[in-house]
Design a protein around this nucleic acid. Structure first.
Lengths: 248, 248
DNA sequence: CGTAGACTTGACGGCACTCAAACAAGGTGG
DNA sequence: CCACCTTGTTTGAGTGCCGTCAAGTCTACG
């Protein structure tokens, strides 16, 4: 039986994400903590979940960065989401059951898992908390829609800028972004898999961002140089992140 | 007070979508029908919901085709989902509250709406039904992820073929596809908005599909000429539509 | 039968891809 | 402790998919 206070602290990033959108009561926090299992760590590059599996628990990322991705026939890889601490990487497996994509660790990842039985129990006893969990999956959807718009209608530079904007705001929400910098441990290859570009072109686009003094990135950390112009280039509008505090 | 039997019939496409994935009881069907409002009709080209609005009800499409879309700065438009009868076009507004995109009618659409108050009531009294509603939004997500993969890693021809495959399977699920044909009323412009292509290129790609005798389309109806090869070209695998009947 | 909207086809151009080679940095073993 | 190797990044040259522009065709409908 894990220590309850430690659990609550570890799950804090999730509570911050939720509390940003609606009130979450202590009882609700306890209900989640009550079904949390022990922490686990994954090495950078390893898979947390693999396409085709049928998980019996869902995974909350509490430290590190992870991605959802699929491999296509010619070996190409497409990342569909990047996850930061406080994100459930596979809450949808509670209902979809079978994974239609894999989840990989971009950097070393610490996670806590929640058995599906326990989560199903929450849907029976805690309707409001259920809606908040549902909301977490809806935020994933909203980000997916925004990515589709970007891939369909924005240039490589705009898309890259948009990703940096999104990451900054999401990391701020869980307290992981400083004023003008935030951690982002990745390779240009993984970025290219996320943006639907080639690795070579990512290199060129990053150079362009540096040259225009918009942002720079050394593979570990992003430094924002000119937030207003970066947002402008990215056509970034955070509406789709639904940051308003409302009754849900 | 609308006629209950008529309501149940109208909502049938939704029930079919749900019943394909899990059992849904008569009591649950009644619970949904009980909060249904009167039917409404939208003309082709009109908007069912507009970006920025905060709907107080969610909209179930019962006849016709609709799209979710966003307009970007240069006037470009990107469709993020195409909806068929049985789909909720904005169930997510129950929790997201503010629309981060618009919903337009591709053809004339008949819809039934469900007040958010009533849906929230369902989350309190019907946990299993709540999970099924949640599941409906998760299916949207899964389709979004698949579109991202397509936009990032497939060619125009492959993407187009993929869309036709997806529509065929989805329409079959609600009984609207015959063996080798199904309705799809759209213009090449709207298709180009969906696939992230230009209208001109959509024309070329459709010609290629015809020339290769894979499928044809006259603006109203799609005729599949060679399903196996179409699937192959599209690299279509229906796992992401989660068609298995399971306890959810 | 005239007109508007939708589709088709051709010419040309550009954004991003591939191929290829050089460079940087971190890790490992002799 | 440094040669060596692996992994990642940068840069250049050439290519191709798909976009834009433009003109012509088809079809529906008033």
């Amino acid at each position: 039986m894990p220590d309850r206070a430690l659990q609550l602290q570890a799950i804090d990033a999730l509570f911050r994400r939720m509390a940003r959108r609606d009130d979450i009561s202590d009882e609700e926090k306890e209900a989640i903590a009550a079904i949390a299992e022990d922490e686990r760590t994954y090495a950078a590059g390893s898979d947390l979940v693999v396409e085709g599996e049928e998980p019996t628990r869902s995974t909350l990322l509490i430290a590190g960065f992870a991605t959802r991705y699929r491999i296509v026939e010619d070996g190409g890889r497409q990342i569909t989401s990047i996850h930061v601490p406080g994100d459930f990487v596979d809450l949808h497996s509670l209902l979809l059951r079978k994974m239609d994509h894999s989840v990989g660790a971009l950097s070393e990842c610490r996670v806590i898992t929640f058995p599906h039985d326990g989560l199903r129990g929450i849907t029976v006893r805690y309707p409001h908390l259920t809606r908040l969990l549902w909301l977490m999956t809806l935020l994933d959807s909203a980000m997916n829609r925004e990515w589709i718009v970007g891939m369909g209608r924005l240039t490589a530079l705009e898309r890259m800028a948009h990703l940096l904007c999104e990451l900054r705001v999401r990391l701020e929400t869980v307290g992981l972004a400083k004023a003008d910098r935030f951690p982002f441990p990745a390779t240009q290859v993984s970025l290219s898999d996320a943006l639907g570009l080639s690795a070579v072109h990512v290199s060129r686009v990053m150079k362009e961002l540096r040259d225009q003094d918009l942002a720079e990135w050394d593979g570990r950390e992003v430094r924002i140089r000119n937030w207003d112009r970066l947002r402008e280039v990215a056509q970034f509008d955070d509406t789709y992140l639904h940051l308003e505090h409302l009754r849900r």
